[in-house]
Design a binder for these strands. Structure first.
Lengths: 215, 215
DNA sequence: GCGTAATCTTACTCTTCAGTAAGTCTACTT
DNA sequence: AAGTAGACTTACTGAAGAGTAAGATTACGC
């Protein structure tokens, strides 16, 4: 790999490394308890560099949010779109991608969804925006299902309701996943599909859902 | 009402008022951004009183968690137990009570479930404990349903999985509720029951769930 | 009305950090 | 090899806020 000596790096590369470090520290400590010096140290750099490149602690946080929420939304959207031709298949693919993302990028998820509702306008606005964009992707998928299902009487508001329930359930299940290591994203999704898609009522009477065949 | 002049109050009464104030400020700002002076002012008192009665900022936070998590767990449990004889009826009653609680005690809910994973051992331990006790109540209800349903192959771990998904979905829906004011707890629960109990697959094909008749 | 215990306050201390001033160092260009 | 732009540092300032020392006030029993 690279030299043991601290190499000078071009700005855009160093910036990404700083954001990586910030994501880690923010996720571990939360926004307020996070200390910029610690982020700088983890990035292998001194504090003024952080301020030179990202402007402020707030700017640093916003940069984390922007980058990671975009990644997550893209991951989910791409997986769902490529996942198949029925709502069921797309839901399966999207949720599996979601659990895989959260398992792999735990820091990003914690920063996006487990921040206290404190801090400045700028930050809460940015967080709200990020969450809304993820919710919108999920709601889009659900809305598509409603349209294709041809069920009248259900509208955008219902899609949004369902999206909230889905995202919340998936979020909370990431905690369950922590306490039951070794669960694959697929197994998590199977469990959730049994609840949400098939319904508890039917699961209790013996029905079992299994992943749809490949397209 | 009471006198306009600041009356001296007995310790146990004042303590509860301080916890009320703390809950409000913690929920608005999060643990770290919350300032003890603000809590004291809101409680109509000066800062040293807070330290005299609750020991430290941490002690104050722990007191909030303890009181409110116990309230919530009791509310849910009582409602579910009194709600009827079938799992479906108990789930309906418990969830409705939950949404009513969250709508009425928004502060408590925010403090219990939207805190960043920062701060000391003492606090994260207390929060984890509180969340686990709520989850345990829900998981108990689900487990009861599994047992009564007589479905073999489903165990405690599945009940816990389902409890996480349920609590997470309900949690996330409290945000939806904020953006759609005027929704009653009953309407929220109907929506959630349609997803979770009946299943999206069946809802998309036209099925509609309505609350069970009174026992 | 007098003592005293509990309630409550003013006015600090001391630490922790966000942010910055004033540079130094190194790689690359010419 | 000399100049320079961009990468990087040391060593500060200033504010905010947790926690406290020392004492002032009021209720209440007697």
């Amino acid at each position: 790999m690279s030299d043991k000596r601290r190499r000078r790096l071009p700005r855009n590369v160093r910036e990404q490394e700083i954001i990586d470090a910030a994501l880690h520290v923010f996720s571990k400590r939360g926004y307020h308890a996070a200390v910029v010096d610690e982020i700088a140290e983890l990035a292998g750099i001194s504090k003024p560099m952080v301020y030179l490149y990202l402007g402020s602690k707030e700017g640093l946080f916003v940069a984390c949010i922007r980058r990671e929420s975009q990644r997550l939304a893209a991951t989910f959207k791409d997986a769902a779109q490529a996942g198949g031709s029925t709502p069921e298949q797309r839901l399966w693919a999207g949720l599996t991608a979601f659990f895989a993302f959260v398992a792999e990028h735990r820091d990003a998820w914690l920063v996006l969804h487990r921040q206290a509702p404190d801090q400045s306008e700028a930050i809460s606005a940015e967080l709200a925006q990020a969450r809304r964009s993820i919710m919108a992707v999920v709601a889009g998928l659900v809305g598509q299902g409603i349209t294709e299902g041809g069920r009248p009487g259900l509208g955008e508001q219902d899609a949004d309701f369902v999206a909230h329930a889905l995202v919340g359930a998936a979020d909370s299940l990431t905690e369950w996943m922590e306490r039951h290591p070794g669960q694959s994203p697929e197994r998590m999704t199977i469990g959730l599909m049994n609840m949400m898609w098939v319904g508890m009522r039917n699961v209790l009477t013996g029905e079992v859902w299994t992943p749809p065949r490949e397209t």
